[in-house]
């Protein structure tokens, strides 16, 4: 267990903030986050999927492109974005658009990464800003497997009733 695991918060209706510390200098965390060969190591695709494209150029105007294929579709899903703000090893902002293989957009957001280092430990804070509350909620809900979601739906109905 990591000494300080990931914290997730939703400070506004359209944002998700992820905060995590890493036992490494921020120069290395930056490199791991934005270098394609390194990114492939931690951007774990869903089970049965493989990463086919992984490009990332962390400079203003630089592109971010990732694609995955499944047994049924190639690509099954794509992620594309452009860096809009870059302060080396400190701060990076990029747009992000997730789409299905068919090209249908399933979500777009602005992602801000902030890195601070103290005594060789780096804190990374990722702020995901979605277009709407629905899009934000969808991103959170997509993390749940279907069984769990069905269970939540049942509980929602149940909790809507007065006890």
């Amino acid at each position: 267990m990591h000494p300080s695991g990931l914290q997730v918060s939703t400070p506004t209706d359209t944002t998700i903030v992820l905060t995590r510390t890493f036992n490494a200098p921020r120069r290395l965390v930056w490199e791991a986050m934005f270098t394609p060969d390194r990114m492939r190591r931690w951007m774990l695709p869903p089970p049965g999927w493989t990463t086919t494209v992984c490009e990332c150029e962390a400079r203003v105007g630089g592109a971010l492109r990732v694609a995955w294929k499944s047994e049924e579709a190639d690509p099954a899903m794509t992620l594309q974005g452009v860096f809009t703000e870059v302060v080396l090893h400190e701060r990076a902002v990029h747009t992000e658009r997730m789409a299905l293989g068919s090209g249908q957009t399933i979500g777009s957001l602005l992602e801000t990464h902030e890195f601070t280092e103290k005594d060789g430990v780096t804190t990374m804070r990722i702020t995901q800003a979605y277009d709407s509350k629905e899009a934000r909620d969808g991103a959170i809900a997509s993390g749940m497997d279907q069984g769990m979601e069905a269970c939540y739906e049942r509980l929602d109905t149940l909790l809507a009733r007065p006890a």
Partner: peptide, 15 residues
């Protein structure tokens, strides 16, 4: 996300 960040921990140790 924590699963991804655990993989990132390992990668950083290697780096």
């Amino acid at each position: 996300w924590e699963a991804r960040f655990r993989a990132l921990d390992e990668l950083l140790d290697e780096m």
